[in-house]
């Protein structure tokens, strides 16, 4: 079902003090898409996402989520449709145990006790923090606090998931859990929007990349196409992942034709240039 999930037309937004944060955005997001949203601080990406869960109302234009105006829905209604992982975990943690923290959102959207219990167990397991279920979240390290908020948001299983810097402050193992959980959400058909400065992450988790500057959309296309285009990246002040840069530096010598934004792509491209398994011979 590739119907429109989020439909934005002519969206403009200015803050009460007059700063214009969004200068006219038109955007269609279909169900199940895996979107990456990038841009410098102040480019408007966070402001745009806050319109998707009704936190902000447009100054002009329209934003529809599943055909309805986002800001017309009540708090618990929108919370059941749109999940938003905020950048700073400390803005959300307040319960005495990790379990209660994950239950909080689930109760607000009106789930029954059995379903709540099932989901808490599932998502704590997925994020590798089941052993911390009875632990006070505020006493945990920053990385673990982050994992708790990821679990709390993912457990709500909304159709649309907005994740602001989901792997910031996580170490390698924690990051793997979160990336796996987000991929899982994508497999289950949920639409995901990942906001990040980390282009490696975008290559791993997104198919479509949208780059904003100064309140408008500058680039919108396949993640792989954009990340492997040095000119495009430079034009919006972004840097491609290291593997892309390496491929760029040797592409003339090796006649790469593929677009490369992950290590797997690179290996495949190299194999193509080396007939016979790659033990001998020239390209």
């Amino acid at each position: 079902m590739n119907q429109s999930h989020v439909s934005i037309s002519g969206l403009k937004f200015s803050y009460p003090d007059g700063t214009q944060a969004i200068r006219g955005v038109d955007l269609e997001i279909r169900h199940g898409e895996r979107i990456g949203l990038a841009g410098e601080n102040g480019s408007g990406k966070t402001t745009l996402c806050k319109h998707m869960n009704g936190l902000l109302s447009p100054s002009a234009g329209r934003i529809l989520v599943d055909g309805r105006e986002a800001s017309s829905l009540g708090a618990s209604e929108i919370a059941a449709k749109v999940g938003y992982l905020f950048q700073n975990p400390d803005h959300q943690l307040f319960c005495s145990t990790v379990r209660e923290e994950v239950e909080f959102g689930l109760r607000n959207i009106g789930l029954g006790a059995d379903e709540i219990g099932r989901r808490v167990a599932r998502y704590l397991e997925m994020l590798g923090i089941s052993h911390l279920a009875e632990h006070p979240p505020l006493a945990l390290s920053l990385g673990l606090r982050r994992l708790v908020t990821v679990a709390s948001v993912l457990a709500m299983e909304q159709e649309l998931l907005i994740l602001d810097e989901p792997i910031a402050w996580l170490d390698a193992k924690q990051k793997a859990s979160v990336v796996g959980a987000i991929r899982q959400a994508g497999t289950e058909g949920r639409t995901t929007v990942v906001i990040s400065h980390n282009m490696k992450l975008m290559a791993e988790l997104t198919d479509r990349l949208i780059v904003m500057t100064g309140g408008s959309i500058r680039l919108d296309g396949k993640t792989k196409d954009i990340l492997s285009d040095p000119a495009a990246m430079a034009s919006v002040g972004l840097v491609s992942p290291p593997v892309t840069l390496l491929a760029e530096s040797i592409k003339d010598a090796l006649h790469f034709t593929r677009r490369i934004d992950t290590n797997e792509d690179f290996v495949s491209a190299l194999r193509e240039r080396m007939p016979g398994g790659g033990t001998r011979g020239t390209g």
Partner: peptide, 12 residues
């Protein structure tokens, strides 16, 4: 295994 993110090129 000790929680450190390796450089992408090292993984490559």
């Amino acid at each position: 295994s000790i929680g450190v993110e390796p450089p992408q090129l090292l993984e490559l």
